[in-house]
Design a protein around this nucleic acid. Structure first.
Length: 416
RNA sequence: GCGGCUCUGGUGAAGUGGUUAACACGUCGGAUUGUGGCUCCGAUAUGCGUGGGUUCGAUUCCCACGAGUCGCCCCA
């Protein structure tokens, strides 16, 4: 139907736009404090970037991308996430040339073809942060801190911060092999989904809702037992930094990330009342991505937060700012003679940056007064034949109902 | 991609196999003379998500599609 937006998309109406602006302002203010600068990358990229960056075999790449061929016969994809793009931009613009750590953030729409649900749209918005060029675990902690402080500063509570480590290319394969072996032995007890996961991604079996609570799960190989020294020390350090900053967290060794590029630290912040779509922010370290995309070995960490979900959470907790329509003056005119005079008055006020409005419906003065009251204006500026004849304006204070007729020239001073 | 539920005006909703589809809010108009917020009066769905089917007749029954929603999956 012509009058319906595509499935999974939403109009953001004026009432909500205020909320979005408020949220985005919070984001920008916080990033400034933490020293992250805003980057805006294209909404679409070469498909290859996501295939390499996110990894074939992941759900996002295999079944959720909006991919099409453009008129120049290029395969293009609407970005399903922004980390690959940011890394691409980092390399293309040689931001590493500035030396040290590059700290960037972004806010924008992402696209994933998925079945819509509350908190899950096909075009949705993410705020994300990327710190590229430093392997120090303190940066992992900084990123986690930033994500957490962001949510807390909005007033949200009942948040759960989960962290884990998923190892690196040296030790993860060992863990993965052990998991495959272990679950193959217990294959009879696995649900249908997990039997499928056994080959594709055995890590996912760990957080299966069906099998997650079965007895044999407790004895599944733990990542800690497989970690190489470097990864073990790194994870210990991240925990140390978080503790030093007074952050409460739970280590969830079943937490895994859906995108291939994650290494070492993985974390997620959940807001349980949201139900099925409770992950409000998530991220981790991705030391292999820059190289994967064609740069030199460069460590990096980041996270992304889902803005619709955050807005949903804020609404649940009634933390959204109340909309207050503010207008200073409402011009009311009586008779066609006065309309041009009123229009000039309206224009003059606006040129002085005084928010002013007028009802162009050529209605009765009574109707115009009603409109003035509804607009929330502090003053009604009434002009009729008498005012036109004497170059005056009747200024009525809509709160006190007091009114007086004064020369046009004095109006702006009177209502400021 | 899978399963469940839902779909009546601008909004919240009541309702029935067959005359005018409640009620409330909102909106618009009016209650004499150029003035609002309160009150009172009046108007406001030829239409019940879309398309088929069953029936003498469907908004009410059936089917398909669409959209929303909950859960799964996935993820932010």
């Amino acid at each position: 139907m012509l009058t319906n937006a595509p499935r999974g998309t939403k109009d953001i109406l004026p009432e909500q736009t205020r909320h979005w602006l408020w949220l985005e302002n919070k984001i920008r203010a916080l990033c400034e404090v933490y020293g992250y600068e805003e980057i805006r990358t294209p909404t679409f990229e070469h498909t290859e970037l996501f295939l390499r960056g996110i990894g074939e075999g992941t759900d996002v790449v295999d079944k959720e991308m909006y991919t099409f061929t453009d008129r120049g016969d290029r395969s293009i994809t609407l970005r399903p996430e922004n980390t690959a793009s940011v890394v691409r931009a980092y390399l293309q613009n040689k931001l590493y040339g500035n030396g040290g750590l590059t700290k960037l953030f972004y806010v924008g729409s992402m696209f994933r073809y998925d079945r819509p649900q509350a908190g899950r749209l096909r075009e949705f918005h993410q705020f994300g942060v990327e710190a590229i060029g430093e392997k120090n675990p303190a940066v992992d902690a900084e990123i986690i801190l930033l994500a957490r402080e962001f949510l807390l500063s909005l007033g949200l509570n009942d948040l759960t911060l989960k962290i884990n480590t998923v190892g690196c290319p040296k030790c993860r394969p060992i863990w993965r092999r052990k998991l495959t072996e272990y679950f193959t032995e217990n294959a009879d007890e696995l649900c249908a989904d997990c039997r499928r996961r056994l080959e594709k991604n055995p890590l996912r079996i760990l957080d299966c809702k069906v099998d997650g609570f079965k007895d044999f799960m407790d004895d599944a190989p733990k990542i800690e037992t497989c970690l190489c020294d470097e990864c073990r020390e790194h994870f210990a350090a991240v925990k140390k930094f978080l503790t030093a900053a007074g952050v409460e967290f739970v280590v969830d060794n079943r937490l895994v990330r859906g995108l291939d590029y994650y290494t070492k630290t993985a974390f997620e912040i959940q807001y349980a009342p949201l139900g099925a779509q409770s992950a409000v922010a998530g991220g981790g370290r991705y030391d292999g991505l820059v190289r994967e995309i064609g740069g030199s070995d460069t460590p990096a960490v980041g996270f992304a937060a889902g803005l619709e979900r955050i807005l949903l959470a804020l609404e649940l907790q009634r933390l959204l700012p109340v909309n207050a329509k503010k207008i200073t003056a409402f011009v009311v005119s009586g008779g066609t003679e006065a309309e041009a005079y009123a229009f000039k008055l309206l224009t003059d006020l606006r040129r002085l940056n005084i928010p002013a409005a007028m009802d162009f419906g050529s209605k009765s003065m009574k109707a115009q007064m009603k409109a003035a009251a509804k607009s929330g204006a502090r003053f009604a500026l009434i002009v009729g034949e008498e005012e036109v004849a004497t170059s005056t304006v009747t200024v009525k204070n809509l709160e006190t109902a007091a009114q007086e007729r004064i020369p046009v020239a004095e109006v702006s001073a009177k209502i400021i």
